[in-house]
Design a protein around this nucleic acid. Structure first.
Lengths: 229, 229
DNA sequence: CGTGGCCTTGATAAAGTTCAAGAGCCGTGG
DNA sequence: CCACGGCTCTTGAACTTTATCAAGGCCACG
């Protein structure tokens, strides 16, 4: 069955015996969302959580005047909204699809039951949450102690680590979204990119391509040792 | 035995059978720290985690130029550094005592073994991590989308919820530390307090006392609907 | 080939930080 | 008991960084 192979591919359920995979297949709901479609909103009551199967989803907060801060961008395999399952019962942020996406929904009760029988799932889940706490701690650190150029530089270096061609990056999100991920506005992002270009740190190629010309220079910026001026 | 009663009081171990409490007592190390003493630093290799028994501990990040951002302030019962046990092996931030404190240290391996036998610990731990993720998400939200007056107002209201006398607060940390918790510097905090006083929102009483005169006004500020000016 | 969305650019304003100096508070020791 | 020294906290003024507002440009897609 197709479902099973998807479930087996989810890291959270890696060490699960076959019978439990079947079990999961029974309780989940297979859901398809379109680009821009909202999966849930902050404060919604949660009856379970989701796992991304295909596509990408952004998790974000909104201020009263509509400005958004992106917390995560998740792709295939990542659980979403699981925090509400373990504590609080309400989703702590908004989730929206960046592309047409497919998600599995797991109802709370059945999942909690499964977890009690399978310490391995619990441990995987603890690892996932720990990883996110770590990321959040970094994000807080960055937002509070570093300026935008440093955050952008760090993001470019991060991209360069995760992409095949080390110095020829392709942004996986629009610049508008990137500004929201970095905790700033499009205008500021644009200006800083121009400054980086003028300093010979990077070069833009088309709408989404960015070529890194001076790795070292970006690292200095990301560390906060250098100033962009 | 005194140890056991302390362990039993830790929420994480709430539903544990007596034999397992004894077990924990065998593996833990009882440690005493002085005020200002460092418990661990960011990047240190972790061989286990701590639980605060008495005293208070701050978890914080440092920028190169020495500015700090406080992530948490933990009191009795709170686990510290557990993230490193489940993922990554290194502490993600610094931990320092705000007062003379007593902590129990639990070595990783024994604890992981225990968790595999006790789904209840895993669930409690998942709840703790979930709660922290929620708090972090709020903090990120605040840092990125709200200004300092709103953050301060929110903090004062939070204090007022947790303290006996609703409108007569006593700061539990110095103003310098508070500024670091709010993601700003002492000068700015001081100025905003003065503004709040001039607007009749609060009154200072001695070094650490703060009296709330206009609850509603603070709420408007915290929501971001009102501006301080 | 026009139109709408995204991105860029400029001018202006706001918020917060930094630097420097002074004030208040507290424990210590004479 | 008072004076001293060292804190933390406050206040002022200049400066940075970033946001905001307002156009204008560019590209992509119909």
């Amino acid at each position: 069955m197709e479902l099973i192979s998807h479930i087996a591919a989810i890291h959270l359920f890696k060490d699960l015996p076959e019978e439990h995979l079947d079990n999961l297949a029974m309780i989940l709901t297979d859901q398809v969302f379109q680009k821009r479609q909202l999966i849930f909103s902050e404060g919604d009551e949660a009856t379970g959580f989701y796992v991304v199967i295909t596509g990408r989803v952004k998790i974000f907060k909104l201020s009263m005047d509509g400005k958004e801060q992106i917390l995560h961008i998740f792709g295939p395999g990542a659980p979403i909204g699981e925090v509400a399952v373990f504590e609080g019962k309400r989703f702590p942020a908004n989730a929206e699809c960046l592309e047409d996406s497919r998600l599995f929904f797991f109802p709370q009760n059945a999942f909690l039951k499964l977890i009690k029988e399978n310490p391995s799932i619990a441990l995987h889940m603890l690892a996932v949450l720990s990883q996110r706490l770590r990321r959040f701690a970094s994000l807080i650190d960055d937002l509070s102690l570093k300026e935008v150029p440093a955050r952008l530089a760090a993001y470019l270096l991060y991209l360069s680590e995760t992409q095949p061609d080390l110095d020829n990056l392709s942004l996986d999100i629009s610049k508008g979204q990137l500004s929201s991920l970095l905790g700033t506005v499009p205008e500021t992002l644009s200006r800083i990119l121009t400054k980086m270009i003028n300093l010979g740190l990077i070069r833009l190629e088309g709408t989404r391509g960015i070529q890194i010309l001076d790795h070292k220079g970006l690292e200095d910026l990301a560390g906060g040792e250098t100033r962009l001026h």
